[in-house]
Amino acid sequence: MKKFIFNKIMEYKTKNFFSKLKEFLNFSDNIVIISHQNPDGDAISSSLGLFHFLKKKYENKKINIIVPNNFHHFLKWLKKSNEIIIFSENETYSIELIKKANLIFCLDFNSMLRTGDLENLIISSKAKKVLIDHHPSPEIEQFDLILSKESASSASEVLYNFIEILGEKKLIDKNIAECIFTGISSDTNSFSVNSNSLTHKIVSEILEIGVDKEKVQKNLFHSFSFDKMKLTAYVLSEKMKIFPKYNLGLISLSAEEKEKFNFEVGDSENFANLPMSIKDIEISAFFTNYKDFIKISFRSMGNFNANLFARKYFNGGGHKKASGGKSYKNMEETIEDFLFYIKEFLNN
């Protein structure tokens, strides 16, 4: 089947894409929405926004959200977040839903690889698969329809475009608007990165629907546990290293340190951005232990392309200003490699 990929809002070929999409929706009674492993604010918010929209437009269809693993409490205030199915905690039920699905929406990832243990289940499913995303270079062969807008701030912004081009903006109520605003706020770090004039235009329209932006900001950025605050103080005072020669800052966090501070999913959210608050720092990296690998998050300002760097050296990718990767070496070796690669990358 022909794929349709759109990178700029003016290049949408709505007739072909949306005729296929409507065909998929009309013949699908069981719909599953899936996002990536370690779901962040944009992943959860865009999934819930799509859920509310589809439930409002198609009242008689069965719609479920499945994520690979749990997500942080600072997102659990969103309406219906308690109905999200956590695959790692409900494997049998999740497998049953995916097998029954006629249509799977994939949000905020560009490759099935990013869905962790769900990857093979989704690929083997006979359901039609629709991608709504903003990451570069989607794995085209994995999806039946692709709505990918790299210039967008977030998958939540692309979801707004999706609803807009469907001609259904009238269906955007406070619940949907709140999800879109939360996703955009989260992925732009409260509009400090990855936002443009179109993002702010959409946010302006969303706020007019009645979103309480103070409530969203409070829940996203000012509702941390005491342990999380102590962990933040610890990484700032003990774990952050600065390399002025490269305008670089990095933070690392071991499994033992996470245990010491009663680490919960999402507690290290934004740690990759912390060094960027220091004058003249334009590149930052955050390294943290997972079971079988070191997860690395990269952030940048100026001309450093975090996406290219992650792709070239750490089997990753993302955006120019924010990307991620993995290393299967230990923490010390990973950081040594990183510093060597930074020097090589900058010199070239």
Rank of each mutant, 00 (worst) to 15 (best):
M1W: 10
E11T: 14
E11I: 10
Y12S: 13
K13I: 13
F17C: 01
S19R: 12
K20R: 13
S28G: 09
N30R: 11
V32C: 12
I34K: 03
Q37I: 12
G41F: 10
G41H: 08
I44H: 09
L48W: 06
L48M: 05
L48N: 06
G49E: 07
L50Y: 00
F51A: 08
H52D: 02
K57G: 08
E59N: 15
N60R: 08
I63K: 04
I65T: 07
I65P: 11
I66V: 07
N69L: 11
N69I: 08
N70Q: 12
F71E: 02
L78M: 12
K79G: 12
S81D: 08
I84P: 01
F87T: 09
F87P: 05
F87L: 05
E89M: 06
E89H: 11
T92P: 08
S94C: 10
S94E: 00
I95M: 01
I95V: 10
E96N: 14
N102D: 14
I104W: 07
C106P: 06
R114Q: 04
G116C: 01
L118W: 01
I122T: 00
S124N: 14
A127K: 01
S137Y: 14
E139L: 13
I146C: 00
S148N: 15
S148A: 12
A152M: 11
S153V: 05
A155H: 08
S156H: 06
S156Q: 02
E157D: 09
E157Y: 03
L159K: 00
Y160G: 10
F162K: 09
I165L: 15
K170E: 15
I176R: 03
E178G: 14
C179V: 09
I180L: 11
F181V: 04
T182A: 01
I184S: 07
S186R: 10
D187H: 10
N189C: 14
S190H: 10
S190K: 03
F191V: 04
F191N: 04
V193M: 12
V193H: 09
S197E: 14
L198C: 13
L198F: 15
T199E: 02
V203I: 05
V203R: 07
V203Y: 07
L207R: 09
G210V: 09
K213M: 12
E214D: 15
E214M: 05
L220D: 05
F221L: 00
F221V: 02
S223M: 05
S225Q: 11
L231Q: 03
L231S: 01
T232L: 15
T232M: 14
V235R: 03
L236Q: 06
I242E: 01
F243T: 11
F243S: 05
L248R: 09
L250R: 06
I251A: 11
L253P: 11
A255Q: 15
K258Y: 01
K258R: 07
E259G: 11
V265G: 13
L274G: 09
M276Y: 02
S277L: 12
I278M: 11
E282H: 10
S284C: 02
F287M: 06
F287N: 04
N289A: 13
F293H: 03
F298N: 06
F309E: 02
A310F: 06
G316W: 04
G317N: 08
S323M: 05
S323E: 03
G325T: 00
N330R: 07
M331E: 04
I335D: 00
E336L: 14
E336D: 15
D337F: 06
L339Y: 00
L339M: 07
N347M: 15
